[in-house]
Design a protein around this nucleic acid. Structure first.
Length: 417
RNA sequence: GGAGGGAUGCCUGAGCGGUUAAAAGGGGCGGGCUGUAAACCCGUUGGCUAUGCCUACGGUGGUUCGAAUCCACCUCCCUCCA
């Protein structure tokens, strides 16, 4: 790879953010010479973003810190259509109110990563519904539609996959790529945006936008994609027992978020430090070089840094401290998720399986009982295998709490004040 | 509009009158080994304080001592023809 001139590209290439770029040298030239305006689009299908979106969020962050202007494009309009990429089934359509609510939740998360404002490098949020819902059919077909050939559209991966598998692809979805391409043109016109970034599965859509911009606006646009992040053992990143690791603290507590990063596989630590923290590269290299059990130190740094970015340094510190007390000392720490229960119920002796269920450690009594039978249940760190064991006031510590555990990692503090 | 095919547990997918809470795999959860890692091995995987009861094979009725399995209608999906 030739020597890069711009801080922005040197930084993100060095940290592993880039998979493909439509014209790296020319983009480097632009970025070295002035402020680049770039965007990434986000679907509004869920009420929050999750860890799977972190690469692109961090990319926008690094870009802004390198002196450029990020645009967060909310797909309020395109979500009404549905992206066929990577899906072999038609996506169900969401009601408009849900889309709007989702958008609000997503926006929230960005506050932690980007500095919003109208100045030269201030981040902005735009909703493509603004222009997409204004479109009128015939003029749109004449101005934009004529630049797309069915031949090329049929060759797109997202389309071919469906057709090859003989799955239906509706005309509505078929239009997604046209609309996404149009977004780029619109952002170029409104904000002088010349770069679209996204996951590598968006490459086709991004290239369409670049091409369209050249044809209808004579613009020189760029596209850049990030690699798909899988874990070292090949699993898709960002899923845990409870499902996706959400960014919204209401959907995934700072404690769980910290734990997610703490549980990173050894082989991923270096890469994740580079992608998901702001630590300088010499520091990440030092941490990555740690061997054996020492990598745990690197994982803690990763968890601290990643959590601090999203939830703030205090939340990260609290999670780290709770983890230290819970795992390294085996005690009941304050920061654990806690559930309150009436003290009188402990007086009579509360069945452990019911307590586990109420604490959210098991979805049903039957599951809780299986957990106990399997030897995975603990009260204050002591394994209990009696299915009908009762938790009593004698189990309470001085503050009126009992620590219930399901397995080695999931702990809840049951409080009976 | 016509002809055929399909809908099974978290997912894929077998079963095609009783021995089926439903094969197999995946995933999940737990245990062991470890370092709150990976890999591997083992157990478990509808609900209910349970030698039992309830709910379950798209929906509603029916045939039968007995249905996920047979019949009718309905809903949704797919393929082909017009």
């Amino acid at each position: 790879m030739p020597e890069l001139k711009s801080d922005f590209l040197r930084d993100i290439v060095g940290r592993g953010f880039m998979r493909q770029c439509t014209d790296l040298e020319a983009l480097d030239e632009e970025a070295a010479g002035g402020t680049v305006v770039a965007y990434i689009g986000y679907d509004c299908t869920a009420p929050s973003l999750h860890v799977g979106h972190m690469v692109s969020i961090m990319l926008l962050r690094r870009m802004q810190r390198a002196g450029h202007k990020p645009i967060v494009l909310m797909g309020g309009g395109t979500t009404k259509v549905g992206d066929p990429s990577g899906k072999d089934e038609t996506r169900r359509l969401l009601p408009d109110a849900r889309i709007a609510a989702n958008m609000a939740g997503i926006r929230e998360s960005f506050e932690s990563y980007l500095a919003f404002g109208d100045d030269e490098t201030g981040a902005v949020v735009v909703d493509n519904d603004e222009w997409l819902s204004e479109l009128t059919y015939i003029p749109f077909l004449r101005d934009i539609g004529r630049h797309f050939t069915i031949n090329r559209m049929l060759a797109m991966d997202s389309v071919r996959l469906r057709l090859d598998r003989e799955q239906p692809l509706t005309f509505l979805e078929f239009n997604y790529m046209v609309l996404q391409g149009y977004d780029f043109v619109e952002l170029f016109r409104r904000y002088g945006c010349t770069l679209q970034m996204g996951g590598s599965d968006q490459w086709g859509n991004i290239v369409n936008g670049v091409e369209l911009g050249r044809r209808v606006a004579g613009a020189r646009l760029f596209g850049l994609t990030t690699p798909l992040i899988a874990t070292a053992s090949g699993a898709k990143m960002g899923k845990t027992a409870e499902g996706a690791v959400w960014l919204d603290p209401g959907m995934c507590s700072p404690w769980d978020y910290w734990q997610f990063w703490r549980n990173t596989e050894d082989g991923d630590v270096g890469r994740f430090l580079r992608l998901f923290t702001d630590l300088p590269l010499d520091e990440t290299a030092r941490l990555e070089a740690l061997e054996g059990a020492e990598v745990n130190e690197a994982k803690k740094v990763l968890a601290n840094e990643a959590t601090a970015l999203l939830h703030g340094p205090e939340a990260a510190e609290a999670a780290a401290e709770t983890a230290r007390r819970t795992f390294e000392e085996g005690g009941a720490a304050d920061g654990l998720p806690s559930v309150a229960v009436a003290r009188s119920r402990l007086g009579e002796g509360l069945l452990l399986f019911e307590a586990l269920r109420e604490a959210g450690l098991a979805p049903s009594n039957a599951e809780a009982r299986r957990l106990i039978r399997g030897g995975g249940a603990r009260v204050n760190g002591v394994p209990v295998s009696d299915e009908f064991h009762k938790v009593t006031t004698a189990d309470l510590d001085a503050d009126g709490g009992v620590r219930l555990s399901a397995g080695k990692k999931r702990h809840v503090l049951l409080r009976a004040p």
